[in-house]
Amino acid sequence: MPELKDKVIIITGASRGIGRAMALTFAKEGATVVIAAKSDKPHPKLPGTIHTVAEEVEKAGGKAVPVALDVRKELAIKRLCDDIGQKFGRIDAVINNAGAISLTTVEETSPKRYDLMQQVNSRAVYCFGHYALPYLKKSDNPHILNLSPPVNLNEKWLKDYSPYTLSKYGMSILSKGMAAEFKEHGIAVNTLWPQTYIATAAIEFAVGNKETLNYARKPQIMADAAKVILTHPSQNYTGLWLIDEEVLKAARVTDFSQYAYSPEHEDKIQKDLFLD
């Protein structure tokens, strides 16, 4: 299988949570990680900035390129892709991890919040696909990985927060389309979604509360699954809606207790949204 050493990997939303876990996991493999996030300065409530993660990446054995990025700004995405693509001669992988979430109904969701979710979630996938494409074509094992779920049209996933659901399903449908479109260039496009809640700020503040984290897994499980995906040959591993646990089981991982955020609650870990 291809390795990640010296691979150039862009991760959005990489200043904390799943994005940070991925950055550090790839760093241990010797990758060059572009840490792209809005968190240029410390947040009053949330730990981590692009600069603190860059330091961690370097200490872990990788090379770090911290970039302040708002994924709603397509010209900033273009500039990032051009800068990285020209500096390194290629882009090997893009991971669209940055996300906006509001579990609200149509009635409760303001147009401003609706637009934010569509821009940060599905539109950013399009923008990175569009602007990173010339540089992904130059990689010997190019991947785009989007953090979105399998499309599940069960009414319960639509009824209470369809604006958010639409933005995430848009990512998944676009991924299928790009996988077919980019296949001739050998570029893999897949999605990855957790089987269970992941202990992140989104789960703590948007889905539940601090107590909810006890029924979640650590972000490391998503990072380990992403590493498996990015080390697959891109030619024959594309167009898939993947689940972290299934990816790792296929890679012969059998001990999932290592990922429990709260080991004493391991038998009560909660299944994530969109999974029946």
Rank of each mutant, 00 (worst) to 15 (best):
A250G: 11
N190I: 06
K168G: 12
A188C: 09
Y135F: 14
L192I: 03
H143T: 08
Q118D: 04
L4P: 04
S172W: 03
A132S: 15
I50P: 14
K268G: 03
L46W: 14
A23D: 06
H51G: 04
L213T: 07
V106S: 01
E56I: 01
A206I: 05
S110Y: 02
I144L: 11
V189P: 07
E155S: 10
Y197K: 06
F88I: 02
K112P: 01
I91V: 12
S172P: 07
I35L: 08
A68H: 12
G170S: 11
I198F: 04
G129H: 08
I229G: 03
D92A: 08
A36F: 05
P134K: 06
V71D: 05
T231Y: 02
P142G: 00
L147H: 04
Y164M: 08
H265E: 15
A202T: 12
I203S: 09
G61H: 06
A31H: 09
A36K: 00
F256H: 10
Q86Y: 02
A132L: 05
K28M: 06
S110L: 07
A68K: 15
Y259E: 10
M1C: 11
P47M: 09
Y261H: 13
T109S: 15
A98S: 10
R72Y: 01
A21F: 11
G61S: 09
Q195M: 08
I144D: 02
D70T: 00
K249S: 05
A132Q: 07
P47E: 14
L136N: 06
S172L: 09
N152P: 10
F274M: 11
V94H: 11
A93H: 07
T49R: 00
K271G: 02
R90M: 12
K210A: 14
E181F: 14
G239N: 05
R20K: 15
D224W: 08
I50A: 00
R217H: 13
T105A: 04
I173F: 12
A199N: 13
D244F: 04
F256S: 07
A14K: 10
L136R: 03
D272F: 13
N152L: 10
N236V: 04
K268H: 12
I198T: 14
V120K: 07
L174Y: 15
G19I: 07
Y197L: 14
T49P: 14
N121G: 09
Y169G: 00
A226W: 06
N152F: 12
Y169N: 01
Y135Q: 01
Q220H: 03
D276V: 07
I101R: 09
L136F: 05
S167I: 08
Q119T: 03
L153W: 13
I95D: 04
I243T: 07
D244T: 01
I198V: 15
A124S: 15
A23C: 07
P263C: 06
Q118M: 15
I221D: 01
V228D: 05
F182N: 02
P66L: 01
F26E: 02
D272L: 08
D255V: 00
L80Q: 02
H143D: 14
S39A: 15
P2Q: 12
H143K: 11
S39D: 10
G129W: 09
I11N: 06
N236W: 01
I269K: 13
G19F: 10
S122L: 14
A251F: 04
Y215Q: 03
N190T: 11
P149Q: 11
V189M: 11
R123Y: 10
A64L: 08
M171S: 12
